[in-house]
Simulated scan of single mutants.
Amino acid sequence: MHVPDGFFNAAVSLSAGVVAAAGVAVCLRGARRELDDRTAPMAGLVAAFIFAVQMLNFPVAAGTSGHLLGGTLAAILVGPYTAVLCMAVVLLVQGFFFADGGLTALGVNITLMGIVAVVVGWTVFRLVTGSVRSRPAVVAASFAAALISVPAAALAFALLFWIGGTAPIDVGTVAAAMGGVHVLIGIGEGLITAVTVSTVLAIRPDLVYGARGLAAPLVLRGADGDAVVTREPAAAAVPRRPGWFLPAGIVVAALLAGIVSFYASSSPDGLERVAQDKGFIGQATDHPLAEQPLADYGDAGGIPVGVAGLIGVGATLAVGGGLFFAVRRRGRDEVTGLESGREEVSA
């Protein structure tokens, strides 16, 4: 659902840019509390994984395809603030390296695919897991949250198009079309999210941010009736670095982008199909970087899509990894400064 240049007037594009910038600024501060020795390296991997899976368009209806948005998946794995930053990194790499998503529409894309999808997905996830504390509940909540987040972002697009779209299309028509096709895409989103979360839970449950604290302690009663806690809650476990999980995840992302991407559906995605059917696809303008070699994932420069995908995974990992470690270091420095201040006051 990458919005191209030309769909929105200058006022909406600028306003969405301001919202996106403000949201990223808030998330930069919030991510300092989420990023630790587990989530900082995981966040870079999650961004690279989302980039890779977004290349894998899957058919959802005759002549229409969809792809992962990834905001809910990122929120569950590394936290909602960090998830918005993950999506911003992915969209920046796609926009500037691969001419995927308009540059003037970058604020719109971050707002829709980052902020809206993450907020809605994380809210649904927390509502479902709030009263049920088990791994199956986390997986089921992952599916439901991801499914709902996609049509929510699509309806937000329809709202923005009603406010400042460049074509005189009835908002109800756009909303119905966008909502309908993106419910189908949301099912695919939910399945991918649930399978990914379930896999990580099975291998390294401590790396799933949304599952921290969900495992209740096992309590046994002694002969005198006193309760004895024999297993600590997950939240109390000592944080471990991702270790071998990180290179293994990079290999998976590379295989998806480098090999599986050759088999992705070539049909237009949900937004493009709706724009064609409703007559506003002609409002899209050429991307200013459409002639660079990696544009359209290598098609402009005759580069195989798998090679372009590998470059994209590497670029996303580098940009995201650098950002997340910098944010982590800033948060650690703030904690150290506070502790030093307390010691000076105590002295």
Rank of each mutant, 00 (worst) to 15 (best):
I203F: 13
V229A: 07
A215E: 09
G225K: 05
R241C: 02
E189Q: 03
Y263M: 11
A194M: 10
I187F: 12
V200W: 01
F262A: 10
A215P: 07
G225E: 14
L255V: 11
L256N: 15
L201C: 11
I187T: 04
T193N: 02
L201T: 09
Y263G: 13
G186V: 01
I259C: 10
V238L: 14
S267G: 05
I187N: 11
R204L: 09
A248L: 02
A227H: 12
G188Q: 06
L255N: 06
A264F: 11
A216G: 04
A235L: 11
A235D: 15
V260G: 12
D206C: 10
V195D: 04
P233N: 09
L220D: 14
A216T: 09
G222H: 13
E232G: 15
R231C: 08
A254S: 06
S261Q: 03
L207K: 06
T196W: 01
V197A: 00
L184Y: 02
V260N: 07
V200Q: 02
I185K: 08
V238K: 14
V197H: 02
A227P: 00
G210N: 02
G258I: 07
V181H: 11
S265Q: 08
I185H: 05
A223D: 15
A216C: 05
V197Q: 00
A248C: 05
R241E: 05
L214H: 12
V183T: 00
L246M: 01
A264P: 15
L220N: 09
A254Q: 01
A235I: 12
I187V: 13
P268R: 06
G186T: 00
V251A: 08
L207S: 09
V197E: 02
P242F: 02
L201P: 08
T230K: 00
E189T: 03
A257E: 13
A216W: 10
G243F: 02
D269N: 09
F245I: 10
I192S: 09
I203C: 03
G213I: 03
L201E: 02
A237I: 11
G222L: 10
L218I: 11
P242A: 08
S261G: 06
R204A: 11
A235F: 05
I259Y: 12
V228L: 08
V195R: 03
F262R: 03
A264L: 10
P242Q: 04
S267Q: 07
R240A: 13
P217S: 12
V252T: 06
F245W: 08
V183P: 00
G188F: 10
R212Y: 01
G249F: 14
A248G: 15
P247R: 03
G210L: 04
A254D: 00
V219Q: 10
V208T: 04
